[in-house]
Design a binder for these strands. Structure first.
Lengths: 325, 325
DNA sequence: CTGTTAGCGCTTTCAC
DNA sequence: GTGAAAGCGCTAACAG
């Protein structure tokens, strides 16, 4: 099966009684050929009649670009990633690009990268969990929440928000994040400026190990705990609860989404940045790079700010369902 | 910028000192050209050295197929769809196909269909919410949980399971589903066989309206309520709870996933079918159709069976996190 | 304003 | 065993 026999340019041209290149020029709005209204009409009619659609393969071959962007992601079962994919898809379509999906397996990007390279993608958005192969991708890449030499990034600018969050803190500050996040650098920078003792811990991916890590951190009783990663924030607040209120650090988390989790009394505030905005800007920056309007590597900064939990704005982040804001 | 300058067949051929068609034959394992080991070695080396990757656009153009399948889906924010997309992606890759994603907007498939058609996809998997344009897709299509004239489908075979679920029922049976589901037909068929009075109601998509619908149904006090759609099952059980136990119908729901919702005491049992299996078979059937190994339209039947809530097996379906089984 | 031509990278007969 | 040549559908220079 499968022999579509779609109409081609030549079919359309024959139908319209013109040369097929003229049809091409019509389609691409080539200014070199402003044909008579009469001709245009005929071409339009022929296109409609034959239900003609240009072959993207032929165009890709000819133009050297496929108007397709690869989303290199981890498991979509993770609702954060599903949201990102969703927004990216909509945004890319607006920009005239298709989205090809590829999933890393565990932390291994290798196969996913290969499957993307096998197609002639014009660029890659990286929201995967891995850290290796993707640096070698022979096309523009933009990654979120991580620093990568020579590649474009879209990172939240945490500095001012963290500074605000740490106001009034004088004791020890512990920060928690995954090791690819720019969060750690930000906490360090701000800690230096404020003259605070900060300590960063990378979170094990395994939930069991992570809980153990949280336990050991709580034992040291830091005055403030900064968390990048809402799942971990949930775990921490549950842990603090189970200890019965004897230890009450200032807990600040990063939120670029709404969720039920944020409602927890243990959280003193959120460092808020817009997840939707991040994805949108990631998409548009990538497209601009591809189209030569922006030079690579680009460094997109997503603004953030501190929202204390007693501010009315905070309640906007509380919502029964997880959702990027 | 984008000028990749990837190596082509000719580059490889020059490097290996052979004709470029020979390289092509090497790549495609063309039996017509079983070259000397020596030549093979040289070609292999050249490919590696130049980091050659075939141009999929050129191949697509030449071969008339792109080895790409479109997933026409609704919003991925819905975790059921995200799971399906996830599994489909993995499955399709195993089968040598890429996945292009397109999202319907609301119930409108139009733009999504167009964006898919614009690319030279070989086939479409339909898990969208819409009902219109997709019938006209000029390529093999397989849809899940709905009947469509002339197109392939992968539907759960509910009959036996429903028969089992209705054992012992003598009063009125009400069935609930979305209007595209094959669930309704199955309930009708089984009702006829068992000589039961069955009544089907289509569920409004809007949650508010749906709740009203459930209210009106409960007023009539049917002896059994069959639900296809776990979200609605949740709503119903909550509703029954709020009525304080005065009305206790036999509630049976369809489950092709695990979830916390199933734990509810109100549910007498689940009609179980494997969601993962459904997606996998959908993918492989579509690929077989595309490759001419299966004639279209294919009708895939996914088995199901009734699992009463007091059976030990039922507890396997109860899980904190939603997941396709 | 419209047509001619070359060629993107690849596969596939068909010769040698 | 290997190579020559045609052509998939399209675009863009270049002629007319």
């Amino acid at each position: 099966m499968g022999k579509r026999q779609r109409a081609t340019l030549k079919d359309v041209a024959k139908e319209a009684g013109v040369n097929f290149t003229l049809v091409s020029k019509f389609l691409t709005r080539n200014p070199q050929a402003r044909m008579t209204k009469e001709t245009q009409k005929r071409i339009e009619k022929a296109i409609k009649k034959l239900n003609y659609r240009p072959s993207s393969s032929a165009r890709a071959l000819r133009n050297g670009m496929s108007k397709t962007i690869g989303l290199l992601s981890g498991d979509l079962t993770n609702s954060y990633r599903a949201h990102v994919a969703n927004i990216a898809l909509i945004e890319l379509r607006k920009l005239g690009y298709q989205m090809l999906l590829a999933l890393s397996e565990g932390f291994d990007d290798h196969n996913a990268v290969q499957s993307l390279l096998a197609r002639d993608i014009d660029g890659v958005i990286y929201i995967g969990p891995g850290i290796h192969d993707w640096k070698d991708l022979p096309c523009p890449v933009i990654a979120t929440d991580r620093n990568v030499a020579g590649k474009s990034t879209a990172n939240v600018d945490f500095d001012d928000a963290i500074k605000e969050a740490l106001k009034g803190i004088e004791g020890e500050v512990v920060s928690l994040c995954f090791d690819e996040s720019v969060w750690k650098d930000s906490v360090e920078r701000v800690g230096n400026i404020l003259g605070l003792k900060t300590e960063n811990h990378f979170l094990p991916f395994d939930v069991h190990d992570r809980l153990a890590k949280l336990h050991s951190i709580c034992k040291k009783r830091p005055q403030a705990i900064l968390i990048n990663g809402w799942h971990t924030a949930e775990m921490l607040t549950e842990l603090l609860d189970s200890e019965g209120g004897s230890y009450n650090p200032k807990v600040v988390m990063h939120a670029n989404c709404t969720g039920p989790f944020i409602g927890h009394k243990r959280i003193s505030g959120a460092i808020y940045s817009s997840g939707t905005d991040m994805v949108k800007r990631t998409c548009s920056a990538l497209v601009e790079i591809i189209e030569g309007k922006l030079s690579e590597p680009a460094e997109i900064k997503i603004p953030s700010r501190y929202i204390p939990s007693d501010s009315p704005e905070f309640s906007n982040l509380i919502c029964r369902h997880f959702k990027l804001t």
